[in-house]
Amino acid sequence: MKIPKLLQAVLVLIGVYLGFILVFDVLLDAVIPSSVLAMYMFFVAAGVFMVFTFEEDGTRELVAPIKALVEEPSRRLIRNIVFVVVPVLAGAGTYFQMVPSLDAPVELRSIHPAPPTAIKVYGKRVNLLKLENPYRKFEKEDPEKFKELVAGGAKVYIQNCQYCHGDKLDGKGPYAAGLNPTPLNFQDVGTIAQLQESYLFWRIATGGPGLPKEAAPWISSMPVWQNFLSEEEIWQVILFLYDYTGRRPRSWEHDG
């Protein structure tokens, strides 16, 4: 038996929708955000529309049931039911969309806000555009010393950072569960691998209070580390972060 085109289209849409839910929420155990899912479905619907209507015969077949529903005298009962149910559904949908809820409002943080050109740390002005890790050069020049520096950074990390960012640098430290926003996961390809070392220096030295307004809400618990760590210690920790995760800092020079 051939499934009518309209039903086909609807089935495809429902199938894709359930597919997303199944794959992300059940199989991968990582819920698909409703905002993303809504847009995904919008474009899937556009695609389905395109495939079903690009040729004349198919289009006619697709809209035939709708046309019949609206025009044919024999379908009066169904027509009346549909004409009542659809507006009610639309109204209900709108109502539940708009009704105020007790949930906290959706928050959007810009995780990597644009850095300022220059910052003030350790009582001096530092130009972030030119700032470089003073120890990075030892990676090639003096691997022994570099190893030592990384080890130093590891020590600093374990003593200060791992409580939140985790001993695997995955953002799952003992205290992480109590924090919102949650501590950064340095293993993620979207974090330190995307950034220059100067950016990390800025974020570590000035902490949550040093975030610009666009990164609000301003509730990051990251301490202002320049009050606790020396400049050298921060640079060593940065070496450690990249070394442990196996990532490379963003740079424009070819150092491969």
């Binding site: 992300f24 991968l28 990582a30 819920v31 698909i32 955000p33 993303v36 943080r109 995780i111 953002g171 799952k172 926003p181 949650t182 501590p183 996961n185 993620d188 390809v189 979207g190």
Partner: peptide, 11 residues
């Protein structure tokens, strides 16, 4: 999700 990062959509 346990944080603002999505393991599969993030990348």
């Amino acid at each position: 999700l346990g944080g603002p990062y999505h393991k599969y959509l993030g990348p």
